[in-house]
């Protein structure tokens, strides 16, 4: 029993750690203050492309070489970087839509989000920027 509790405890700590590595930002016109893991998965898989306001969602994240992207995808989309890439190749080439924009740094993600109505981005948890809105990611 103690071993089971320990395993559950460690899993929760690991999950919290992975979540804590990234933060979600949106452009100032987006009227949300929190988003669920399920919603963010649907956004980054191109299944939810509109905010409730009717504005188009423009997703962005750090490029696939970033360990933050790796942990974000595994934690929220349950996909490896390669699986995410393969998913979007099928989606893109069959005419379903275009993949989220990727950038080399949190600053560049924030530049994009700040300049793009309806944009959402994933940045390093330590990143701060007054031009964008930080929102809560809920389980």
């Amino acid at each position: 029993m103690r071993r089971i509790l320990l395993t559950i405890g460690l899993s929760l700590i690991w999950t919290a750690r992975a979540q804590a590595q990234t933060k979600v930002i949106v452009s100032s016109d987006v009227e949300v203050s929190a988003i669920t893991q399920a919603e963010i998965a649907r956004i980054y898989l191109g299944k939810k492309t509109f905010w409730d306001s009717g504005a188009r969602i423009q997703p962005s994240l750090l490029d696939e070489k970033s360990p933050l992207t790796e942990s974000f995808l595994e934690e929220n989309l349950k996909k490896t970087v390669r699986q995410f890439r393969a998913y979007w190749k099928r989606h893109l080439f069959s005419g379903q839509g275009t993949a989220p924009k990727t950038f080399a740094s949190s600053k560049l993600v924030a530049d994009f989000v700040a300049a793009s109505p309806g944009a959402i981005g994933i940045v390093d948890a330590g990143y701060t920027d007054d031009r964008v809105k930080f929102i809560e990611l809920q389980p």
Binding site: A86, K89, R90, F93, S94, G95
Partner: peptide, 17 residues
């Protein structure tokens, strides 16, 4: 458009997919 039938028809030309 590609006929939306099954898994492959819409990606059959896209070999990287």
């Amino acid at each position: 458009m590609f006929i939306p039938f099954g898994i492959y028809n819409e990606i059959h030309t896209a070999k990287p997919a």
